[in-house]
């Protein structure tokens, strides 16, 4: 900051939260112990909830704690424990260095675009830069395309939660996405239960037996159809019996 005589309490809190978020996120992606990674992921989510509090959006801080910490983290911990034996393996593959370089380059570009820095670029020589910052001066790129209009931050309405709730059921605003997403969650929950369903061994054996029977039946029907090609309904009956299951 340019005029940093002393840090306000909010700034100090922001820095603490940001360091907690980024430090625990780095731990999550580097550790080989998945269980610890899941626990540090909770700390990351908690820090993000703190950032939402600093934005004055208490609603989303609470939603973050309920959904991410309360639901998704528990889901991840359960998955970690159900796939025990995958612990302690090499945490990264052979492309780790390339991945780190890629992520670093993307971060550098984002920092250039969103950060406080100004980099002088000769647009006449690299015209591609004018795509990022159309309103930039010819030799100046970086932190320009996104700069908010020079007006004070609008006050947040007191009733922002009520407005938000009304906009979700307003046919002129977000009613259709809201219904679609409700349908998506419905389908997803049913699908997740179906995919992860534990099948009993007896059930699997029964399934295989039925499949073998069907295959034998079909082969028999084919053989009979081949021997007596003028009998039409026989293959159809075989098809109907397979479609039953």
């Amino acid at each position: 900051m340019t005029n940093s005589e002393i840090m306000t309490i909010h700034q100090a809190l922001f820095i603490v939260m940001a360091l907690a978020v980024l430090g625990s996120a780095i731990f999550v992606v580097t550790t080989s112990n998945l269980f610890r990674a899941a626990l540090m992921l909770i700390l990351t989510f908690f820090g993000i909830a703190g950032l939402f509090v600093l934005l004055d959006i208490g609603l989303f801080a609470v939603a973050q704690v309920l959904i991410y910490i309360g639901a998704i983290s528990i889901l991840i911990i359960f998955a970690v424990m159900l796939t025990r034996g995958m612990q302690g393996m090499v945490p990264r593959n052979s492309q780790a260095v390339a991945a780190a370089v890629t992520a670093g380059i993307i971060f550098a570009v984002l920092l250039l675009l969103f950060g406080p820095f100004r980099v002088t670029v000769d647009v006449a020589r690299w015209p591609v830069f004018s795509l990022f910052a159309g309103n930039a001066s010819p030799r100046d790129v970086g932190g320009i395309a996104w700069t908010p209009p020079n007006q004070p931050i609008p006050a947040m309405p007191e009733t922002y939660i009520a407005d938000f709730g009304r906009s979700l059921v307003d046919g002129n605003q977000y009613l259709l996405p809201f219904l679609l997403i409700a349908f998506l969650v419905d389908v997803v929950l049913a699908g997740a239960i179906f995919i992860a369903r534990q099948r009993r061994p007896a059930e699997i054996i029964e399934d295989r037996r039925r499949q073998a029977e069907e295959a034998a039946e079909e082969a028999e029907a084919m053989r009979q159809a081949g021997m007596t090609p003028d009998v039409a309904p026989l293959p159809e009956g075989a098809v109907a019996s397979t479609a039953e299951h």
């Binding site: 978020v21 980024l22 992606v29 945490p91 992520a103 993307i106 971060f107 984002l110 969103f114 950060g115």
Partner: peptide, 20 residues
């Protein structure tokens, strides 16, 4: 914006480089 860009890149690294 900087915190979220850093978080995004950390997540991108995990998606590209983790073996699990």
């Amino acid at each position: 914006l900087v915190v979220s860009a850093a978080l995004f890149c950390i997540g991108l690294y995990a998606v590209l480089a983790r073996k699990n």
